[in-house]
């Protein structure tokens, strides 16, 4: 009985949190002088029920899903990976380097190599705070945060100086080789195969957690590191592996942006996907199917918001407020839920 009701709550609490955030968002929209019903209707029909709009939603869902998986993976081992944004930048950089400097390969080889480059660069950027946490005991929250700003400026420097396209009016790299482009999956839209990369990663991750010893080890460390250590697992090694894996997944989000959407490296190419990813991981509560659903929702919010701004004159930024509020409400629902549990046990 208890088990059953908590399963319903598991599904219900994110929905309640999202609904509450949308409600507060409606008040904000009303205060800005627009009818919230009109604004939300435009937002969701344009982003989900319109072919081109849906294409744009998928384009935004891909990096959100991959970065979200990165945060979620770390969270399974009890690690807060707030460094998704920096890992996205490093991943984008890795893929750009493979895309630019390995010319003349067939797509069948070049494309996976470019993805691998992004994964590895992200993995290093996630692995550093993992190593510092495991070996030196430095809190990963602050190190991952600081590394975001370092990665952002590193990419900024590279596209301004060594990687800049000769004669470019602003700072960006040359186009990467076409053999490293992720193909378009919905004709006449921008929707590219990055979303498939995200879904494949989600499935692999699901298998890792449901079936493999590594997944079991990660969850054991997350639930009770002391017990995990007593049973002979290396907590340190697990933390480093899991943070590298998390960084690699977020790195793929950067790869997907470069290889699928922009085809070159730009300064500040991520509009904060790494931070949205934190919201996604909490909303989905460690559930991989949940993160697919919530990243589609956040992708729709982001793509619909642009249309809403154009046609209903509501600032895009209302969406960022809604996303933040969603995390706030999900945090509150955790607390309420724990209180219920305490009462039930009594």
């Amino acid at each position: 009985m208890r088990h059953e009701s908590s399963r319903i709550w598991l599904l219900l609490s994110p929905i309640v949190a999202i609904a509450s955030a949308l409600l507060v968002g409606a008040v904000l929209i009303a205060l800005s002088g627009t009818n919230p019903v009109t604004a939300y209707t435009v937002l969701f029909t344009e982003s989900l029920a319109n072919y081109y709009g849906f294409g744009s939603t998928l384009t935004k869902t891909a990096p959100l899903l991959l970065a979200g998986l990165g945060v979620l993976t770390a969270l399974k081992a009890g690690q807060f990976n707030i460094g998704g944004e920096g890992q996205i930048y490093m991943g984008g950089l890795g893929s750009t380097l493979v895309g630019l400097y390995l010319q003349g390969l067939p797509a069948l080889i070049h494309l996976p190599l470019a993805l691998l480059g992004g994964f590895l660069f992200g993995a290093v950027w996630g692995g550093i705070p993992g190593y510092l946490k495991a070996v030196r005991g430095v809190n990963e929250v602050i190190t991952t945060l600081l590394l975001n700003y370092i990665a952002l400026n590193l990419v900024g420097y590279l596209v301004h100086e060594p990687l800049i396209e000769p004669g470019a009016p602003s700072a960006y790299s040359p186009l990467i080789a076409q053999s490293a482009w992720l193909p378009i999956i919905l004709p006449k839209t921008q929707a590219h195969a990055g979303i498939l990369v995200g879904l494949i990663a989600a499935v692999i991750l699901w298998v890792v957690f449901a079936r493999s010893p590594l997944g079991y080890q990660i969850e054991a460390v997350g639930l009770n590191p002391v017990a995990a250590r007593y049973s002979g697992m290396s907590v340190e090694r697990t933390i480093i592996i899991v943070m590298a894996l998390a960084g690699g997944l977020a790195g793929l989000a950067g790869s997907s942006e470069v290889m699928g959407l922009k085809h070159r490296l730009f300064e500040q190419f991520s509009p904060g996907y790494g931070y949205d990813a934190i919201a996604l991981a909490f909303l989905s509560r460690g559930n991989i199917a949940g993160i697919v659903a919530t990243s589609l929702f956040f992708g729709a919010l982001r793509s619909g918001a642009n249309v809403m701004q154009r046609s209903a004159d509501v600032p895009v930024t209302v969406v960022y407020a809604i996303q933040g509020l969603t995390v706030l409400f999900i945090a509150i629902s955790f607390a309420i839920e724990r209180r219920f549990r305490v009462i039930r046990i009594k």
Binding site: L28, S32, Y275, I278, A279, P315, T317, V318, V319, Y320, A321, I322, Q323, G324, L325, V327, L328
Partner: peptide, 9 residues
């Protein structure tokens, strides 16, 4: 996250 969203809004 909320502060970033609300202030820019």
């Amino acid at each position: 996250l909320t502060a970033a969203g609300l202030t820019s809004f």
